[in-house]
Computed example of a mutant assay.
Amino acid sequence: MSPTTAAPASARPKRRVPFWDNARFACITLVVLGHAVQRMTYDSEIALALYLTIYAFHMPAFALISGYFSKAGTPTKTQMARVITDILVPYVIFELLWTLTQWLVEGQADPNLTQPSWTLWFLLALGIFRLALPYLALLRWPLLWAGLISVGVGYLPNVDSTFSLSRTLGLLFFFTLGWWARDRDIVMRMRLLESRPWWLRTSAVVVLGATGWAAWNWLSIWESIDLRHWLFYDSSYVDLGGTQWWAGGVRIILIIVALLLSVAFFALVPRGTHWWTRFGQYTMYVYLLHSFVLYPFRESGALRGLDPTWLWLPLVTALSVAIALALATSPVRRVFRPLVEPRPAWLFADPALAAKERRRNDPTGSRRPK
C-alpha cells in the first residue's frame, strides 16, 4: 500500500468512545452506593428514599449497556470459551470465596452453586443473556418477546432464584433493548452522543430529582406495597403480594420508569475523557470485590443507627465512590486478576482458547488492552 492510500474502514482501529466507559463507572458506583446504604435504610427515611431511587434504574441501566456491546450472531469457539473464562469460572471462584468467608466469620456456610451469593447473580445473568440473545435475534419483534418474558416470568412461582433465573429473565428486556439499539444503530443515527442541549440536561435533573422527591414524600406507600422487593425483579408476583391477574402491569410500569430514569441518567453522564474514565473498563473488579469490602461494615452493624443522617449519608456516599475508584486501580487489578479474569488453559481441549490475548474483554463488553 502506498503512503497516500487510505486503509479500508474495516482495517482502521475503532475510536474508543469515552461516554460508555463513563457510563459503566457511574453505574458500578451506584451499585456500590446502593449496597452501602442498604443497612442505613432501616433507620433513615432519606436513606431509604435514596436506595429506592437507585434501585429503580441502576441494574436496568447496567443491563442496557451490557446488551449494547453484545453480539447476536452464531458464537465462535473463542466467544463460547469467554463465557466460561469470563463468567462461569469467576462465578465458581467467588462462590467458593464467599463460602470460605462465611465459614470463617459466621462459623457456618452452605455451599450451593445454584444459589448465587449476594452480588454474583449478575455474572450468571450475563451468561444467560448471551445464550438467549442469538435465539431472540432470530425472531420477528425480539423486543416484544423479551418484554413478554420479563413480565410473564413473574406469573410463574416455580421460577425462582435458582441460578438467578427469575431475576435474569426479569431484566432480559433491558439487555435485549441495549442490543437492539446497537443493532439498529440508534445512538449514531440519532446523534445521541454528539450534543446535549441545556434543556435536555435540565429535564434529566428534574426527572431524577422528582423521582427522589416522590420516593421520599410517599415513602409510606412504597413501604406498604414492599416496593424495594419489586425493584429486585427476582420474585413472583404472588410472593410480592400481587395475586391479581393484572399484577404484571406493575412490572410494566417499573420497566417504563426504569427506562425513563436510565435515559435521564445517561443524559447526565459526561461525554468527554476524564481522569476516572479509564476505570470504566474494569467494572467487574469493582462488582466482584466491593462486597468483600462492605461485608464487615454490614455485618458488624456499623452502618446502623448512624445519626445525624445529613452528615453520615454524604460520608457513606463519598466512601462508596472511593471504594469504586480504589478497586479499579492498577495495583488491585494486578493482585486479583487471576481471580477476576482467570485463563484456565487446562480446562479446554484446545488450550489456545484460554490463552492470553492482545486485548481483554470485560463481561459487560468493554474491550481494552491487556
Rank of each mutant, 00 (worst) to 15 (best):
D239V: 10
L303R: 03
A302K: 06
L260Y: 02
D307F: 09
M284C: 03
S300I: 11
V238W: 12
A302M: 12
W275V: 13
G305D: 05
A258P: 09
T273M: 12
I255M: 14
D226H: 13
Y287A: 05
W246H: 14
A264T: 11
Y282N: 13
P308A: 10
W310H: 11
A264P: 12
V269P: 00
R228P: 00
L227Y: 10
I255N: 02
W276F: 15
W246N: 11
G242E: 08
Y287C: 03
M284R: 02
W230I: 07
L231W: 09
V257D: 08
L311M: 13
G272E: 14
Q244E: 12
I256V: 15
E223D: 13
L303S: 01
H274E: 08
D239K: 14
V263Y: 02
Y285A: 07
S262K: 07
F232G: 15
L261F: 00
G241C: 05
S235Q: 14
G248Y: 04
A264L: 05
Y287R: 01
L294S: 01
S236L: 06
L261E: 05
L231A: 10
D239I: 06
R278G: 08
T277Y: 06
L315W: 07
G280S: 07
L254T: 09
D234E: 15
F279R: 14
V250L: 06
V263S: 12
W245Y: 11
W310S: 10
I253W: 11
D234A: 15
F232H: 09
G242V: 00
L227F: 09
Q244F: 01
S262Y: 00
W312F: 12
L315H: 08
